[in-house]
Computed example of a mutant assay.
Amino acid sequence: MCRSIKTLRPPATPDVSADDIRAAALQYVRKVSGFRAPAAHNRAVFDQAVADITAATEHLLAHLEVRGSSAGGVSRG
């Protein structure tokens, strides 16, 4: 669906920043909504969706257990 969203899970991507996660969330919301930039009357809901997806992605990455990894979950700074 979103070909430009890269895998953020280590070890595929070892150094993932908060900006990387937010960029993926923004790309997802743009794709799903069909808007690159929302109109003023949709800005709040668009921004909230990006924030919600960013938080969900951070939670997912922090709690994934990767086989063969010495630590469960991925640390986010």
Rank of each mutant, 00 (worst) to 15 (best):
T54G: 01
F46P: 05
L26P: 00
V16K: 04
R43G: 02
S70W: 09
D20N: 13
R9M: 11
P10Q: 07
A24N: 05
G68F: 04
F46T: 06
E65A: 13
G73I: 07
S17I: 03
E65M: 12
T54R: 08
Y28G: 00
A55I: 01
A44S: 13
L8Q: 08
V50T: 11
H59Q: 10
V45Q: 11
V50G: 07
K31S: 05
E58A: 06
V50Y: 06
A37P: 00
D52I: 02
Q27L: 12
S69A: 14
A40E: 15
S33L: 01
Q27S: 10
T57A: 10
D52P: 00
A18P: 01
S17F: 01
A44H: 14
A40D: 14
A55W: 02
E65R: 13
R43K: 15
A44P: 03
F46L: 02
I53R: 06
A49R: 12
R22D: 00
S33V: 06
H63A: 07
S33F: 02
G72N: 12
A12G: 04
G34H: 02
L64D: 05
S75C: 03
D15H: 09
V45T: 14
A51S: 12
G72F: 08
H41N: 15
T13W: 00
L26D: 06
G73D: 05
P14C: 01
D52G: 00
R76Q: 13
M1F: 05
D52V: 03
N42I: 09
N42D: 15
T13H: 11
H63E: 08
V50H: 05
T57V: 10
S75V: 11
R22T: 12
A40W: 13
R43S: 13
A37Q: 13
A25F: 03
P14M: 04
A71V: 15
R67W: 03
P10T: 06
E58S: 07
L60S: 04
R30F: 05
L26Q: 09
A23H: 04
E58Y: 01
T54F: 05
S4V: 03
A24M: 01
V32F: 00
A44F: 14
R9Y: 03
